[in-house]
Design a protein around this nucleic acid. Structure first.
Lengths: 201, 201
DNA sequence: TAAGCTACGTACGCTACCGTATGGATCACT
DNA sequence: AGTGATCCATACGGTAGCGTACGTAGCTTA
């Protein structure tokens, strides 16, 4: 088989299609997004990538090594990146509206963000390791919402309650999107956000 | 092993502990609620019930036969029953408030309703048959919400949007409850309902 | 050109399931 | 006492998946 050349830590003269650890992570994210964590199987991913398991166990120590990588990747790509996208907007209201649009329609490396989010939530229910990561991510997200709502003049407890409410509705959208799209229309969530923002006066 | 006596269609002199189809369904619901649809496995349930697979395949043709029974059971116990419970209350507002309390804290045959609901939603994502049933159930639930909100004076489109919003938040509660209970406190959902009802004036 | 490393292929044992085939034990009924 | 029905146990073959052992082709470096 063909190989790639490398010098030091950098890849040069990439004249082959040898897989990287990242290729497996992306394939894992796609599989997770489509079929849930139970669809993230070493041999299925290998088939999908047209290689054998030997490749997988070269890049990863075992399956749970891949699963950890999925969680880390998700944290980076699906949280920090989102907030950074809307940060330049001038007002809290504009930022929250933009965030809603981003979250509803964004895609990352070909993976629909909303679908992936639902898959991560469902995964967290079944796996304590995933649950810890998801809780940490959600704490940061809700913290961000609270800070924005505080900027709009809400006191701490109101901001907290409203933030959680908005986020719960978003979780509902993520869950429903994949089996009942009519229920999870974008407009419904937009309306919820508007209602919350109006309640924030 | 000991058997039971029967006369016609009715069981009499039940001096044994032979299992019924219903026992398997309840065990399946418990397993689904705890570990998702992937935890509903014939041999695991048999172990749980301290019998062999032979019993299962006596009561069911195959695994999907059990899964269908789970869906039917859920529809009966977790929908019709809930609405019937709150029906006697005088005003829409009282009925909706009671419904929220019911949904958040009810248990059915030892199965926490909120946990089970989340499991059914997650199942619907992965299985078209489950998705069809869940969509049908949700259509009825939302239809009920719409009718109550209409009684409160909302026009059709507003009632529809608010109903969907409330239900999406509820789905979020169901999803989050099992891995992030702090996020899914009862008070948060109560506040959402109040907000929606206030918006309905 | 020889050696060594990289990235993968192949083959194996193991476990957890599914569904079937078949037999056995207990009851009802006669 | 004998027969049939009910409910379950046991044993089997088959698949999917995990992780390991080991071989190997192509590159890199000397």
């Amino acid at each position: 088989m063909s190989r790639r050349s490398l010098t030091g830590e950098r890849y040069l003269n990439r004249n082959t299609q040898d897989l990287t650890r990242d290729d497996w992570v992306l394939a894992g994210l796609a599989a997770l997004s489509e079929g849930g964590i139970d669809a993230v199987r070493v041999e299925r991913l290998a088939k999908r990538l047209k290689v054998s398991k030997g490749s997988f166990y070269w890049h990863f120590s075992d399956r749970s090594d891949l699963l950890s990588a999925l969680l880390d990747r998700w944290e980076r790509d699906f949280t920090d990146q989102l907030i950074a996208t809307v940060a330049p907007l001038p007002t809290p209201r504009a930022r929250l509206h933009a965030l809603a649009e981003e979250v509803l329609n964004a895609s990352n490396n070909g993976v629909d963000v909303a679908h992936a989010e639902g898959a991560f939530s469902a995964w967290a229910v079944l796996d304590p390791v995933a649950a810890a990561k998801v809780r940490a991510v959600e704490a940061r997200r809700i913290g961000y919402l609270v800070s924005e709502l505080s900027l709009m003049g809400l006191d701490a407890t109101d901001a907290e309650l409203l933030s959680k409410g908005i986020y719960l509705a978003l979780l509902g959208v993520f869950a429903a999107r994949r089996y009942n799209p009519v229920l999870a229309e974008d407009d419904v969530f937009r309306r919820i956000v508007d209602l919350a923002l109006d309640a924030a006066k």
